Simulated scan of single mutants.
Amino acid sequence: MRLRIDGVVKEFDGKKVLQGASYTFEKGKIYGLLGRNGAGKTTLFNCLSGEMGMDAGKVLLEEDRQARELEEQDVGYVYSLPILPEFLTGYEFVRFFMDINRGRLQMDRTIDEYFDMMSMTEEDRHKLIKGYSHGMKNKLQMLLFLITKPLVILLDEPLTSFDVIVALEMKTMLREMKRDHILIFSTHILQLASDLCDELVVLSKGRLSSVPADLLRSPEFEQSVIDLLKDESHAENA
Rank of each mutant, 00 (worst) to 15 (best):
Thr172Asp: 15
Leu143Val: 10
Leu215Asn: 08
Ile226Arg: 07
Asp198Pro: 06
Asn138Arg: 15
Ser210Leu: 13
Val201His: 11
Arg207Asp: 06
Arg207Lys: 14
Leu215Asp: 08
Leu192Asn: 04
Glu157Met: 04
Glu220Val: 06
Glu169Ala: 01
Val201Gly: 09
Leu208Met: 04
Phe162Glu: 06
Glu220Trp: 04
Val152Cys: 03
Asp198Ser: 03
Ile182Cys: 08
Ser186Lys: 05
Arg175His: 13
Lys139Thr: 02
Phe162His: 13
His188Leu: 06
His188Tyr: 09
Glu199Ala: 15
Phe145Leu: 10
Thr148Ile: 09
Asp180Cys: 06
Asp156Thr: 03
Thr172Gln: 14
Val211Phe: 04
Lys171Arg: 14
Leu196Gln: 03
Lys149Ala: 09
Leu140Phe: 06
His181Leu: 09
Thr187His: 10
Pro212Gly: 11
Thr160Met: 13
Ser209Pro: 02
Leu203Ile: 08
Gln141Ser: 14
Leu140Gly: 13
Ser210Pro: 00
Ile182Lys: 08
Gln223Arg: 10
Met142Tyr: 11
Pro150Leu: 06
Leu151Thr: 12
Ser161Met: 05
Ala193Tyr: 03
Thr160Arg: 14
Leu216Met: 10
Ala167Arg: 13
Thr172Cys: 14
Val152Lys: 00
Leu154Phe: 11
Lys139Ile: 02
Leu183Ser: 01
Leu183Asn: 02
Leu154Glu: 07
Lys230Val: 09
Leu146Tyr: 02
Lys178His: 14
Glu157His: 01
Glu220Ser: 13
Leu228Ile: 12
His188Ala: 09
Leu229Asp: 02
Ser186Pro: 08
Glu220Lys: 05
Leu208Ile: 02
Lys171Gly: 05
Asp198Arg: 00
Leu140Ala: 11
Leu228Tyr: 11
Ser210Gly: 05
Ser218Cys: 08
His188Val: 09
Gln191Leu: 11
Val225Gly: 05
Asn138Trp: 01
Lys139Phe: 00
Leu146His: 04
Ile189Glu: 12
Leu174Val: 07
Leu159Trp: 02
Gln191Asp: 13
Lys149Cys: 08
Lys205Glu: 14
Arg175Trp: 08
Leu192Phe: 10
Phe162Cys: 04
Thr172Pro: 11
Ser186Trp: 00
Lys205Gly: 13
Leu228Phe: 11
Leu190Pro: 02
Asp227Phe: 05
Gln191Cys: 04
Leu196Gly: 02
Ala167Asn: 03
Leu228Lys: 12
Val152Ser: 07
Ile184Val: 14
Lys230Cys: 08
Pro219Ser: 15
Phe162Pro: 04
Cys197Glu: 05
Ser218Pro: 01
Ile147Lys: 10
Met177Trp: 15
